Amino acid sequence: MGTLTSLPVAKVRRAREGMRLRVNSSALTGGIILALILVGAAAAPALYPGDPLDMAASPFIWPGTDPAYPLGTDMLGRDIAAGILHGARVSLLIGLVATLVSIAIGVTFGALAGFYGGRIDWALMRATELVQTIPPFLFALAIVAILQPSVPTIVIAIGLTAWPSLARLVRAEVLRLRNSDFVQASISVGASHRRIILLDILPNTFAPVIVSASILIASAILTESSLAFLGLGDPNVASWGGMVGAGREVLRTDWYVATLPGLAIVAAVLGLNLLGDGLNDLLDVRR
């Protein structure tokens, strides 16, 4: 009898171990891809100390034909490998800082709306819905076009358009935690609202915020690449989107000029999505 009852338990344990292995493999794969990109971005000044926008050689050197330029050159003789590595620094910087701006706004709105409720909740959620009615990319496009393209402008534009979904997520978590025992205990001993929000509630919302942050960074990289593709990137720095936009003019004859930086964008977004999926399952307490 004991053997019969132990069989379902063993199956459940094997299923759980299989799920953990799958989740860890997803997060591990995404982490490896991002680690490789970070290493390349960190090594860019040492490997290519010059300006990646300078003309380094003859135009249209195909990848693999010249050891000095392993990924070839574009129509202006710029080293594509140098552009990709230096562009990684710009794309990751914009993605990270823009995400931090979105997190600051979204967490503030969501925490205040969920904790206080009433008119404050109504006002903050209506402001959130107002921003959500505007397509994020068009909103960012308008901001960059008005303020002139530059890295700080792009960061502000992306940060101001990507926070509403995070605000709703944090609000839902705060509503769930507001009536919990440890929050009521803090209220009963006279703790201030600021202390309760900062020390009791927000630390328990870190898991979904971290998962959302990985997705927001990927979205920010795509948005920056799209803006640069349309000619609204910072002209003083190398970026993946700008390289793809420049290479589209010779896509039929020299496809590698646009394809190689495009693959870099795909790798970065794929790595962030895989990492986000893995973290979502690992940090989900219901699992």
Rank of each mutant, 00 (worst) to 15 (best):
residue 2 G to N: 12
residue 146 I to A: 15
residue 46 A to T: 12
residue 18 G to P: 08
residue 215 I to K: 05
residue 129 E to P: 02
residue 82 A to S: 09
residue 34 L to V: 15
residue 12 V to P: 00
residue 85 L to E: 10
residue 121 D to R: 02
residue 110 G to L: 04
residue 24 N to H: 14
residue 14 R to D: 14
residue 20 R to K: 13
residue 241 G to F: 05
residue 126 R to W: 13
residue 239 S to P: 08
residue 285 V to G: 10
residue 220 A to Y: 03
residue 176 R to G: 15
residue 138 L to P: 03
residue 23 V to C: 07
residue 40 G to E: 05
residue 110 G to P: 08
residue 230 L to C: 01
residue 127 A to W: 11
residue 3 T to N: 13
residue 126 R to H: 13
residue 188 S to P: 09
residue 140 A to W: 01
residue 89 R to C: 02
residue 129 E to W: 02
residue 98 A to C: 07
residue 275 L to N: 07
residue 36 L to I: 15
residue 228 A to M: 06
residue 124 L to W: 06
residue 99 T to R: 01
residue 60 F to R: 08
residue 148 Q to I: 15
residue 66 D to H: 08
residue 80 I to D: 01
residue 35 A to K: 06
residue 7 L to P: 09
residue 108 T to S: 06
residue 6 S to N: 14
residue 214 S to D: 10
residue 136 P to A: 09
residue 257 V to P: 03
residue 75 M to R: 15
residue 70 P to Y: 04
residue 80 I to F: 00
residue 181 D to R: 12
residue 156 I to N: 00
residue 64 G to P: 05
residue 61 I to Y: 01
residue 208 P to G: 05
residue 180 S to M: 14
residue 252 R to K: 12
residue 13 R to G: 12
residue 121 D to Q: 09
residue 172 A to C: 07
residue 31 G to M: 01
residue 201 I to A: 03
residue 144 V to T: 06
residue 226 S to I: 08
residue 119 R to F: 15
residue 18 G to W: 14
residue 144 V to F: 01
residue 28 L to Y: 11
residue 161 T to G: 03
residue 141 L to Y: 04
residue 188 S to E: 10
residue 286 R to Y: 13
residue 205 T to P: 05
residue 118 G to Q: 12
residue 46 A to R: 13
